[in-house]
Design a protein around this nucleic acid. Structure first.
Lengths: 201, 201, 201, 201
DNA sequence: CATGAATGAGAGTTCATTCAT
DNA sequence: TATGAATGAACTCTCATTCAT
């Protein structure tokens, strides 16, 4: 992963080809995983010649990295746009999870792609989760300042919440079963955050 | 992944060689990931001839599957042996997490290997998490029956707890930083389970 | 032998490369036999890179099958073009054998390649001989209808004639000795067909 | 093919093991062909340990050669024992073919094994056919001397007859179909030898 | 004699990347 | 910019043969 900037097309036709390649790569990586995926599979899906790939991306890793960053941004946007600016801190977390579950349902490839980034592009993988945790932590601190959340909340709480969300997404958005009630999941998580799981006195 | 039983050595010497290969594979997969890992890398680390690999494992996938199952079993054992039979349900979850963090610290390859199983051996990946969630759920139900945990706990609660644990393990056992206080993590998670994160009235 | 169509080159350059590979394979298989032959031997003889082989053929079996079919067609053409449209039925068989012996002398690899097809591509092997027998049978029936050949000729007669031809080809075209008189062979076989080997009354 | 004498067992147990290996090899080579066959396949079928193979045979080629020679001898014996010492020369050829077809029906592997010898052990292959042709030629000469067969019969006639027999064996003994009448084949060939296929004047 | 683990050369095949057109 | 043929390093896997027990 050289970090070098992607090659940017100048013409309109070039932009369209680059877009087609990215869409095709999402499907190819989502279906087959990074290593089983092939450049020729991507160009075949995109309907362009094999050689054209290298007009837009330096390598297989480069297009993968571009996708991870797109998705990471997509998750961020989905969460932030799902959060109402009114409501309590607990409600904001519930809304963020609901928005994430929605996004994950619509983009099941996200799990394959982001998880596989652990092996293919560790830096992107790590920063995706570090950034996500950071945003959660900021919300927790805001909630504390607003007097809604208790003191002492720190990075570990953010990681715990993120872990809950990711696994609930894996189980209920990606591995969804007929009998699941996806709409109830945010409330379940929210109740844990509100009061834990112990019997109330 | 053909599910066919691994070839079992008959002699003592054969058992030693098989063990050497498994240990070497743990290092090779941990360092390089499944796809970058090579059979010759494994046999070189094990100090045996390339061909000897195939005396014990049918393929690269087969030894990987054997490792995933070994690790899955290791996680299970670590958690179950870490749990005191006395104590409350909340304490049992804390102890299970502490044992898991300990195991993960000692076997950092576990994350690479289990995460990569999503791509290499999806059946084992899935059953690892489904089984783990099932065991958590059983503990939650026992806690409810004992009057310690509230009613209505279900599969989703188990997945939420598992997600918390896994991500805390990733962040604090595998990506540990100097400044982290690993020993405090189980209490943090435990407090979330006991009372949530909201300000107490 | 998947029967899948060979990959067809689009450009002129591609056609030349495919041709070079087929010619090289004829020599390689002829010299070493299917199993001793290697793809790298073929590409070396053809003067192309190893990987280029797979641009045109799916596997070692696939190029072998292509050759068997080429040769089978070559034998058919040689025989049919060697047959004068005038002359008696017996003369036609003599001419067909003469043309076959000529073809076999010029393509000694044919025996190795077609015989080895029994093991490598049984379907092609079988249909080569079944088709050849069928064409002989059709000639016999035409000869019978013309009043030149006796009644009751059937598939077994065609196989008997084919066997004679093949073994005479093996002995006198492929394993030719200095002292042999290749040109007399068709007459010898022809006389057997005309009157058998018994003493004439 | 080093021509070195096979290792001869001295004990009774050793003889049995050697015999088991030969029988197993007949099946293995017959089913899979020389190159696909494996020593471990042979020892598995024979029910002996892999290493024991080399107690009795120097190499894979050596056991193959032993089988080819066994079979070659079997064909010779079948033909010679099938021939009545009374009867005409033409009848002797008919009986020889009948005996051969019988032998081939009972030992269908013979074709795979002898044909493959062309590639694996060319010397045995060649001498098998040269010897067979020589025996046919001797019978033809005897028939001529007895005044039953015409003058001028030579090596080529023997090869023609052998080719007929071999292909009739392939088609009607090895590739037999339900509708075939194996018992009629010797008469068909015999009639060709007696009078050819032309219409009798 | 019998056993089965150990060896390693050598094969076929894949595919990211380059290049000539 | 687009095309698709060409390249070759690197991989997994096989198996005849050897060897220690």
């Amino acid at each position: 992963m050289s970090g070098s900037a992607a090659i940017q097309p100048v013409t309109e036709r070039g932009k369209r080809t680059r877009r087609k390649l990215l869409d095709a790569a999402t499907r190819e990586f989502g279906d087959r995983g990074f290593h089983e995926a092939s450049i020729s599979g991507i160009t075949r899906r995109a309907g362009v010649a094999l050689g054209s790939f290298y007009t837009y991306f330096e390598s297989k890793e480069a297009i993968f990295q571009a996708l991870v960053r797109d998705f990471s941004e997509g998750v961020r946007l989905a969460a932030s746009s799902g959060i109402a600016h009114s409501g309590t801190a607990i409600e904001r977390e519930r809304d963020a999870l609901a928005a994430f579950l929605q996004f994950a349902s619509e983009h099941k490839e996200i799990y394959r792609i982001i998880d596989e980034a652990e092996f293919v592009d560790p830096a992107s993988y790590r920063s995706h989760y570090e950034n996500t945790a950071q945003r959660i932590l900021e919300r927790l601190q805001a909630g504390n300042e607003a007097g809604e959340l208790r003191d002492g909340l720190e990075e570990a709480h953010a990681w715990a919440i993120m872990g809950m969300n990711v696994f609930l997404g894996l189980r209920y958005a990606v591995w969804a079963k007929e009998s699941d009630r996806l709409s109830e999941i945010p409330d379940i998580a929210s109740t844990i955050l509100a009061q834990g799981i112990a019997k109330q006195p």
